[in-house]
Design a protein around this nucleic acid. Structure first.
Length: 144
DNA sequence: GCCAACGTTGGC
DNA sequence: GCCAACGTTGGC
């Protein structure tokens, strides 16, 4: 299984809205960047993603799961980009701010920091675990 | 609101 | 195919 991080401006789509959408999940669409799209294409069913609020908050607020692998983004008229479907899994009891991540040496190489404009990025297993611990989230809760 | 870092577009 | 001009993202 692989891990990812998805960025969203909470003005446009927030974790609260993701929670309300429940088990059915929602399309993660609107990505118009090839690097981000390539990452979307590599996602497999069951992969987990951190949900990051950009601009407002600037923090990791929760976790979602990939429930449908890449398909043509229905919002893309030119049909060049893809979307995936995700559903809400968990909220972090303690959101992890960008500031904190920057201060954590082990996380210095995250694309979140090195490539601030990328909106869909892979997270290596080690970093994933570190962030989970920082967010005080129990592993059990994720698999619930 | 500003600006750095990218991406994209279009003229040549 | 290069590159200047322009547009966008997202942190500050």
């Amino acid at each position: 299984m692989n891990y990812w991080l998805l960025k969203s401006e909470p003005d446009v789509w927030s974790i609260d809205q993701q929670i309300k959408s429940g088990e059915k999940g929602t399309d993660w669409d609107g990505v118009r960047n090839y690097q981000a799209a390539n990452n979307l294409k590599q996602m497999k069913k069951g992969d987990l993603c951190f949900f990051y609020h950009s601009n407002i908050g600037k923090e990791i607020v929760g976790i979602v799961e990939v429930i449908k692998e890449a398909f043509i983004d229905p919002t893309d008229k030119k049909k060049r980009f893809v979307a995936v479907k995700v559903k809400f899994i968990s909220i972090l009891p303690k959101p992890i701010t960008l500031e904190k991540i920057k201060k954590t040496k082990a996380l210095k190489n995250l694309p979140l920091i090195r490539q601030s404009r990328l909106s869909v990025m892979p997270i290596d297993t080690k970093s994933w675990k570190i962030i989970l611990n920082m967010g005080r989230i129990k592993k059990k809760k994720i698999h619930a």
